[in-house]
Simulated assay, not measured.
Amino acid sequence: MIYIKEAILHIFDVNSDEPIFSFAGLDISEKFTMDYIHAMIEKVEDSDNMKKGVLAEGNPMISTFSTLTTNFIETTKALTEKFFSITKLNPEIPPADLLFVYFTMDEVPHLGLFKLNYSNSITHHISYESEQLTNQLVVNQSILPSARQAIQEGMVLNLNVMEYHVIEKKHLIDELAEKVFYFTEMFLEDKPQPSLKENIAIIKKAVQKTSKAFNEEEFQVLADTKDAIVHSMTEENVIDNQMIAETLYGDNYAKKEKFFEEVQEMGYVDRAPAEVAVAGPKYSKQKFRLDNGIEISIPIDLYKDPEVVEFINNPDGTTSVMIKNIEKIKNLF
């Protein structure tokens, strides 16, 4: 159960590269405001891009976060000052407003910090010139994302144990001359674990490298990998690296060793939480694109049923796909 206690919005002034602080909170009695805040929290918590981390005991941000429950407005101003001191020096980082929310989740105090990037939109402007009313088109450069739109950066922080959930994006930092996750590395001064999406991408790359090393047909192994990942998420709510290796390689220890070597080198975190509610729908189908332009989408629970679909290796080295026992075909035009 989420209970919103306080919320405030600090604005980035694109004309002066400085923040415009609010000295009073948002009106959280407004249903629109409450719905918007709840949507922002869900966008972090329900994303497969979400990464988890815990601020270490000596992290300098802990002392600032610890004052939030007793002095919400001043603490958010201090956090805004640090955040904008990073972004204003790096023009590739999009300008944005910062939305801070103090709330409890299951009676545990949390901070929500959401970066609301600006977008452009055209609106009308009414002016009077020489006592004549004139309607003009103008560009509004500070349009915030709607409740339905995705956000690129945001954080939910457990204020009791300093564990955070974050979604973020790499941006070019001029001083470093490279793209980094500035939200965690420079603002939070921490490094979280890979997200579910990143973990799955690491497994995919490791499988591809292992297949290449042993001259295997990649499409088949990747399909089996996807099946194993979904099974692991369904059965245990984690991605079990050992189970995936057993499913793919059985008693072939050379392939297993190569696979484990690759995932470890790329930073995979084994048995990290993987909620099926987040990842399941994206992995409910096996999708193939053939070199002749045909695309096939097969429900994952039917993929291994030989009475439904069969992949046939031909003597000339090509592959045929046979779809079986079809009673009715519907055009999805």
Rank of each mutant, 00 (worst) to 15 (best):
L144T: 04
K330E: 09
E216F: 07
A245D: 08
E42T: 14
I4H: 06
E327Q: 10
P109C: 05
I296L: 03
F259V: 07
L332K: 02
I294L: 11
E81V: 08
H165V: 02
E262W: 04
D97L: 12
D224N: 15
I4A: 05
S195C: 03
V321W: 05
P109G: 10
K328D: 06
T319W: 06
L113F: 11
A228E: 03
K82A: 09
T225D: 00
M155V: 12
H10Y: 12
I151T: 03
A56H: 14
A177L: 11
S22F: 00
K115I: 15
E6C: 09
N325M: 00
I8F: 01
V166K: 02
S127T: 15
L196G: 11
L144M: 08
E198H: 01
A39K: 00
I239W: 00
D35E: 15
F84N: 06
H110A: 14
N199I: 01
I93M: 06
V101T: 07
L55N: 02
K51G: 01
A254I: 11
V269Q: 00
S47P: 05
P94A: 12
V321C: 13
E257V: 06
I122P: 03
T64V: 11
A24P: 04
D270Q: 06
Y303C: 05
K43N: 09
M61L: 15
Y253H: 09
T123A: 08
T123Y: 02
L144D: 04
R289V: 14
K287I: 08
D240S: 15
V263A: 10
E189S: 13
E236Y: 13
S66N: 12
F100A: 06
P281T: 04
E178G: 03
Y303A: 03
H124I: 14
A228N: 03
M162C: 06
D240A: 14
F114G: 02
T225C: 09
F288W: 15
L113V: 14
K258I: 09
N331C: 00
K282A: 13
V139R: 08
E175S: 13
E129G: 10
G58S: 10
Q264I: 01
Q149M: 09
L26W: 09
I329D: 02
L248F: 07
D251M: 08
E275D: 13
M50H: 00
V276T: 12
Y3V: 13
E295C: 01
N135P: 02
I300Y: 04
R148W: 00
N325D: 06
